[in-house]
């Protein structure tokens, strides 16, 4: 479904990603873990289409070249990014925003737009998923939301947009355990053979609730190791020290006994 090959990005000549390869199959959940500054968020935003990167390599979703498209076209192609820092937009009503987003994507795909009443039903269902109160829809987008509310709003958007591929960038950061569980439950209920998820995180904590099929270690702009969910536990216990300043082409960064397969 998602094929990333030799992806490189730099900002103003400073390299961030240096030849990243990743392949995510339909219905799979992958986790990308890595220390601060390893390029995790850059990876998500390079795929989502943020301005300001010099980009090399390829990235396709269902065979479609993502990197050639505007951000809105990538969304229409089925990509969703959950922001680490969702943007506050005072004065834009959340409900209106959500419906505009869904209808923009539907329009781009040549589908019929959804009316206000039908949309309300869609929104209500999505809100139940992330245990959101009703008044939530009438507030401005993320404005004055708590950290947990902002993250739940991201998952709400994912539930409404029904993407082919969701990139969740540090969705667990700043959450207490209750909010973490709500978000995990929301994501789990959206898992399907038709939908893939890439979870970007520092910590293994979220992965206790959303069990990934594959865990990748991102260090220095490249994926230096991949394994099953036990790799997350290894990282939790040992940190990233064994991977930092390590040449992935020479030898494994962790003892082979740490790999459960």
């Amino acid at each position: 479904m998602l094929m990333v090959e030799n992806l490189s990005t730099s900002i103003g000549g400073t390299p961030i990603l240096e030849g990243l390869d990743l392949s995510v199959g339909a219905g799979e959940v992958h986790a990308i873990m890595g220390p601060n500054g390893s390029g995790k968020s850059t990876f998500a935003h390079a795929l989502a289409g943020r301005d300001g990167y010099e980009i090399g390599g390829t990235a396709t979703l269902d065979g479609v070249d993502l990197l050639a498209m505007d951000p809105e076209a990538r969304a229409a192609a089925g990509l969703f990014i959950g922001f680490q820092y969702p943007v506050e937009i005072p004065g834009v009503n959340n409900m209106y925003f959500l419906r505009t987003a869904l209808n923009s994507v539907r329009r781009a795909r040549g589908e019929e737009e959804i009316g206000a009443r039908d949309f309300l039903a869609v929104a209500r269902e999505a809100m139940e998923l992330v245990e959101m109160k009703k008044d939530f829809l009438n507030r401005s987008v993320n404005a004055g939301f708590s950290g947990g509310e902002k993250k739940r709003n991201e998952i709400l958007q994912m539930a409404i947009m029904r993407p082919r591929l969701a990139l969740l960038d540090e969705t667990d950061s700043g959450l207490d355990i209750d909010a973490l569980q709500i978000i995990a439950a929301g994501v789990n209920s959206l898992r399907s053979p038709e939908r893939s998820v890439v979870i970007i995180t520092h910590y293994q904590r979220l992965l206790d609730y959303i069990k990934p099929d594959v865990v990748h270690v991102l260090v220095g702009g490249r994926i230096v190791d991949s394994g099953d969910h036990t790799l997350a536990h290894y990282l939790e216990d040992h940190g990233y020290a064994n991977f930092v300043n390590h040449d992935p082409d020479s030898a494994p960064g962790r003892p082979l006994t740490g790999t459960a397969s």
Binding site: R50, D51, D70, E72, R74, I81, E88, I89, S104, M161
Partner: peptide, 16 residues
């Protein structure tokens, strides 16, 4: 106009 807000909206499929 807030560039980060524009980008956020566009990632939701809303045209520029």
């Amino acid at each position: 106009l807030d560039d980060s807000a524009l980008y956020y909206l566009r990632t939701r499929g809303i045209t520029a």
